[in-house]
Design a protein around this nucleic acid. Structure first.
Lengths: 155, 155
DNA sequence: TTGTTGGTGAGACTCACTCTCATTACCATC
DNA sequence: GATGGTAATGAGAGTGAGTCTCACCAACAA
């Protein structure tokens, strides 16, 4: 399944760039051409991407700059890093730019696909995790719920 | 909180070794002294451990053998690898040897703590993930639910 | 004893990622 | 437009977690 998805259900590309620019500015980072290109690549992919994915889509970008800019975007809350356990980390837009969702992770090929669950499930999960966290003296920020198994190509 | 936990609520150490030995035998692996020592270290830790943790607890083990044997234990279903996103992977006993649970992951120091949720939450999560997976043609194996935030020491 | 098979451990190797540093782009002030 | 300060860039070196290789060892069967 290679269906494309816009980076957010209700953000046009100019709005996306505006939102990214504001987040960067809030952290005193500039929104340079290289960073704009990076955001375009992630948006066009429509799914979590690795560094090689990015370099294939935009060979003109220098790997060291992409690593550095992914770090900048992550610090600014634009992008989330997903540790899949495979060779490369995956990157996708962070929560406010992309609606809350979870991942189907293929343990064979490492592919990651997004899924969304019902509000009732999310609420129940949040409530019971909050209880468990408070018992452990843990200050919760966000939960991540992954389903590991075999994707349609590898099953 | 450094409370110790037995590797399973109802497994004594001899039972643990029996169970591990059976799983290894099922995959035609031997249960050697080095592997037994490794299982002892993971059991004694009572929480997910990294390779450096293991080498501190058992300096007589060769790093390359520990890596190899962790791989063998993972293939045999004795141990699960947790990709925390930090420098090192974490290892703990796999599901049948350790009851189903989830993780509180500190985004500051990387510490991982186990938590257990109610059966009703687990059932609801499983059901809605199964629905989402079947829509995507994905064959589910297991879900993992992590809560990221700050542990009691780092908050 | 001998052959076979699997395990061990030291160290070389791989490669994802980070760091360094000289250069360049941007922006504000003069 | 010139000047100076600061951030960003890109090429390449460096780092280090994890893997691979290979000579040797241990257990077992014939």
């Amino acid at each position: 399944m290679t269906r494309r998805r816009s980076p957010s259900p209700d953000l046009q590309n100019t709005d996306l760039h505006d939102a990214v620019g504001m987040r960067l500015a809030r952290h005193d980072y500039r929104y340079t051409n290289g960073r704009r290109r990076l955001v375009d690549v992630i948006a066009a992919a429509g799914q979590p991407v690795t560094l090689p994915d990015i370099l294939v889509a935009a060979p003109e970008l220098a790997p060291s700059s992409v690593y550095r800019n992914l770090d900048v975007l992550e610090r600014s809350g634009v992008v989330d890093r997903i540790a899949s356990g495979g060779d490369h980390a995956y990157f996708e837009f962070a929560e406010p730019l992309l609606s809350h969702h979870h991942h189907l992770i293929c343990i064979d090929c490492g592919a990651i696909e997004d899924v969304r669950l019902g509000d009732d499930v999310e609420a129940l999960v949040d409530r019971s995790l909050a209880e468990a966290a408070s018992r452990a003296g843990f200050a919760p920020l966000r939960h991540s719920l992954d389903l590991r198994g075999y994707c349609s190509r590898c099953r």
